[in-house]
Design a binder for these strands. Structure first.
Lengths: 250, 250
DNA sequence: GCTACGAATTAACACACGTGAATTTCTCGA
DNA sequence: TCGAGAAATTCACGTGTGTTAATTCGTAGC
């Protein structure tokens, strides 16, 4: 069931059959399905649950008092939403869906128990968390320094490579189910300018975007044009770096 | 010695005398002192060390190929630099000083051992990590949605309150040892525009900035003008939220 | 196949912010 | 006290991106 998630974790470590089985059990517990543009629950119980996206796209966002919205992270299939982190009191940031989404609501107790019995899972979860933090920092760079074209190109590279990591690309194309307004909120640009920028990327042949279908004919070229380097996604880890990544006293 | 650090952790939990003593021992191990505008070491040994800022300001930044620099985080006295996180291979992001800095280089083994024997320290370290992540997300919002004035005002609110948390403010003023160029790199603005924006904040009486001395006569007013809400700093936690924050299977 | 509504696209105009460069002010060591 | 370099400030001008609003396109429902 959580094949994207498993596939992602295996980018980093090798899971045993028992590991995989344990994770599948956990995911089966409580499945939820919601439509597009809905908020995934986060009050009260939020501290006790983690959400694992099985299908569809979601995002973490913050809404300012005057209505401006900033998307600070995209959640793709296989991503864990650490909803539990800071929603303790004020829940300043929310998690909402962009498309219809199927996700598993996992109680932290359950996940904690599994992780305790399966060290590799624990390590993989850690890796995932650290990568998410790294992505967050890269978004800061993206918003702070890159021009609209670079910025959007950078995002498309990231999304494509992340989707690739969970087996959701085919050759040089993938889906891009977001609205241009969603992209605008993520990039800190207006929808009009997102549109202009997409045209520009299309015009220079760096992307082909028809409806929800995105094709990147020459990923290396798009990367170069966007000053994108994939290192921050840390896909180059394979097992032996485990010890270096493992956090304090597990 | 690590009084700022201890003070910060105690914002969140109550440490015993033994806890404090353990931390002080750890910090004494290896002190380092570097000048302004230097990089704090991060190769090879970086994965095995954590740096604790004792005095001075540092930052995490990324430099693009063409020279543009984005500061993605400020490290103030009492802050832990989780250098160990992603500098494993490519070390895409660096940590550098803004002023002369004194810091303790703590081996992760040592810190891990201490944390294992002192659960409250472990929890406090966790809290600190989660707050850092929350701040990072807020920076994304800041760069994406806020105007230059709001953005800079927001940063000043954040810095002031963080300094307050470690006892480095006096009444309504504190130091701001950064260069306008540093602020520019952090805010994704040009130095010229930082200057203009500072003038504007001065003009409206929201700040008084003379040399390195920053006064905020009416913090609430500055907060309002900057759409700042302190909730993301999670200073409202006191002990009893521990269980909710404690991460997976420690 | 037609309707209706959201999404994408386009256009005209405004302005926040960037750029380059000169000038002034600070800082601090000799 | 002076001088030199760094930081701050100011100016003139250019431009990337925002805003508003109209138009076209796509698509789901009837």
């Amino acid at each position: 069931m959580p094949r994207h998630f498993l596939r992602k974790l295996e980018l980093f470590t090798r899971l045993s059959a028992a590991d995989r089985q344990a994770l599948e059990g956990v995911v089966g517990e409580k499945l939820r399905r919601v439509g597009p543009r809905e908020d995934i629950v986060r009050e009260g119980d939020s501290a006790s649950h983690v959400s694992l996206i099985l299908d569809g796209w979601a995002c973490r966002y913050k809404q300012l008092e005057d209505g401006r919205r900033q998307i600070v992270a995209f959640f793709l299939p296989g991503d864990l939403c650490d909803t539990f982190i800071d929603v303790l009191r004020e829940m300043d940031q929310s998690i909402g869906t962009l498309t219809p989404v199927t996700f598993a609501e996992i109680s932290r107790d359950t996940l904690g128990a599994v992780a305790a019995r399966h060290p590799r899972i624990m390590q993989a979860l850690w890796w995932d968390t650290l990568v998410s933090a790294s992505i967050q920092r890269e978004w800061t760079v993206n918003l702070g320094q890159r021009s609209a074209t670079e910025r959007l190109g950078h995002l498309l590279c990231e999304v494509f490579i992340r989707l690739q990591g969970v087996g959701l690309t085919e050759g040089d194309h993938c889906v891009l189910p977001t609205t241009q307004a969603d992209l605008a909120d993520a990039m800190g640009l207006s929808t009009v300018h997102i549109n202009r920028t997409l045209q520009e990327l299309r015009g220079s042949g760096l992307i082909v975007l028809k409806g929800r279908n995105l094709t990147i004919p020459d990923l290396a070229a798009l990367q170069a044009a966007s000053l994108f380097t994939p290192n921050y996604l840390h896909l180059d880890h394979v097992g032996r770096h485990l010890d270096a990544v493992e956090p304090l006293a597990v």
